[in-house]
Design a binder for these strands. Structure first.
Length: 470
RNA sequence: GGCGACGUGGCGAAGUGGGAACGCUGCGGUCUGCAAAACCGCCAUGAGUCGGUUCGAUUCCGACCGUCGCCUCCA
């Protein structure tokens, strides 16, 4: 990732368009409006698809905690070449296939427990808006019908290439395309083909929308012609977002988005993409690692850095997550046997770390630095619990502050005490205590092993044995 | 070929024109019947390579090497 300007009052985000970090200001209606390109539902979503979902969901969380009203819109593409192809392979109607994978996408991302976007529009739900936008582009001469299709006239839009830093004459052109005036003209509307089992009526005959026009239409419909943040994976910058800009700004004459925010790719020995076949499904990753580890994994690296997905990094994250849980356990313990007064170091660290935490997130959503601040708090808590243990009031205030920080990152679940051990485990632990008191350590160790075999762990503390699930 | 991002300790990952955060691992110690957790301490004289600017560069500039993304569907 490249460097960004230091924080000067308020959140800033790096924009691919200006190639620098920009102050984030709400729109005229006082809300931050954010549109993020979601998946095409032709199969189960993979962990790469989850990165923008996590990043922008947590960004919304952060901005909300920061006092902004945020409207987060993320579309789902449910009409597309790949959907027809997949439907053909599975021998089901394309609409049925899209509906099924849409439901699975929602179910899989729900497991991340980061809430839903405020609106998740679909292509099929926006045909009139799409057709209307195409008509307007034809009216202003930015688009033309040809052979049952409609194409965007790239040469007539002066800013074409401004997002991705390309010039028309530099772009590699392969196929001439007899239906198009210019090889880089792209389809807004595609005439119906016999092997496609869905189509919509339009002024240009039956057909369906091209890929890019849907986002222009849906974003405008949900957020207006101009909004604050447009997000998505960096691989979408060209041509998808470039084309969105051409369509929306060509039709509306105002900047589509103030900030173009792009997350970098997940890597799994090369880019993870469905067409390459090197895929880890989100649901499989959730099964294996759980949402806490997965969410923390995405957040411990900056969103604009490439992120290698692999066991070492996930195992590393799992240990970090465990450390956070242990901190809560330490607070539990301390609150059951509080000290007195105020621990100055703890209080001071908390204030400083809180500032660092929010400064980091203000600076281009710098979650790795926010994590560093979190660990400052963690160490201060342990030192206070083990050393000059403060009174109950400070312990409780510390806990709520700590949990509030975790909550900003969507990790407050780490602070939820796991369900207490069942009675039979408690009984074993009690038996072990008796054995220990009698000096029968062999028996005590046997009982520890028995408890561990049943999925629990005993930790002897000054406050007595603590039994946790593991 | 063009556009773009990036190369920091065993691994992951930050900041910074002049002391290289933070996490994981490892090592030593404290605590502990044991164990775990936790705490204390240690672990890059060097930041892909080579030049340049500078009193001074990991940080700025250039070249080269390398990795990755985009240029076709892709989060």
């Amino acid at each position: 990732m490249s460097t960004t300007s230091p924080t000067v009052g308020g959140p800033r985000l790096y924009s691919t368009l200006s190639r620098r970090s920009e102050p984030l200001e709400p729109g005229p209606d006082g809300t931050v409006r954010m549109y993020v390109c979601g998946p095409t539902v032709y199969g189960p979503v993979h962990v790469g698809n989850a990165r923008p979902f996590v990043v922008f969901s947590v960004l919304k969380r952060y901005l909300t905690r920061r006092g902004f009203a945020v409207r987060f819109v993320s579309n789902v593409t449910d009409v597309n070449d790949k959907i027809y192809a997949a439907a053909g392979r599975e021998e089901v109607p394309s609409a049925e296939l899209a509906a099924r994978y849409l439901a699975e996408y929602v179910a899989d991302t729900d497991r991340l427990e980061l809430g839903r976007p405020d609106l998740e529009p679909t292509v099929t739900g926006h045909m009139p808006e799409i057709i209307d936008l195409i008509e307007r582009l034809i009216t202003v001469d930015l688009a033309y019908p040809s052979h049952g299709d409609v194409y965007f006239r790239v040469n007539r839009f002066p800013g074409y290439g401004k997002l991705s830093g390309r010039r028309l004459d530099e772009l590699l052109v392969t196929e001439p395309g007899d239906a198009k005036e210019h090889p880089l003209d792209f389809a807004l509307w595609k005439g119906h083909k016999p092997d496609e089992d869905t189509f919509w009526e339009s002024p240009w005959g039956n057909g369906r929308p091209g890929w890019h026009i849907e986002c222009s239409a849906m974003a405008q419909s949900a957020l207006g012609p101009s909004f604050e943040i447009h997000g998505g994976g960096i691989d979408l910058a060209f041509p998808h977002h470039e084309n969105e800009i051409a369509q929306s700004e060509g039709a509306n004459g105002v900047p589509m988005a103030r900030i173009w925010a792009h997350n970098e790719m997940l890597e799994l020995g090369g880019k993870m993409s469905k067409s390459e076949g090197n895929i880890i499904l989100l649901r499989d990753a959730l099964d294996r690692w759980g949402r806490d580890v997965l969410v923390a994994f995405f957040l411990r690296t900056h969103y604009r850095s490439k992120l290698p997905f692999g066991d070492p990094a996930l195992e590393d994250t799992a240990r970090q997550v465990e450390t956070i849980r242990n901190t809560i356990l330490a607070l539990d313990r301390a609150e059951s046997a509080p000290g007195t007064g105020i621990n100055r170091e703890l209080a001071d660290t908390l204030v400083a770390a809180r500032n660092d935490f929010f400064d980091a997130l203000d600076d281009d959503f710098h979650t790795p630095r926010a994590f560093a601040a979190l660990f400052e708090v963690i160490h201060a808590i342990h030192r206070a619990v083990d050393g000059a243990r403060p009174g109950l009031a400070q312990l409780q205030a510390t806990r709520s502050e700590f949990v509030a920080l975790l909550d900003v990152l969507g990790l407050a679940s780490l602070a939820v005490s796991r369900p207490g051990a069942p009675v039979e485990i408690v009984a074993l632990a009690r038996e072990r205590e008796i054995a220990r008191a009698e000096g029968d350590f062999a028996r005590a160790d046997e009982l520890r092993a028995e408890i561990e075999a049943r999925g629990y762990e005993v930790r002897d503390t000054p406050e007595g044995p603590q039994v946790t699930s593991r």
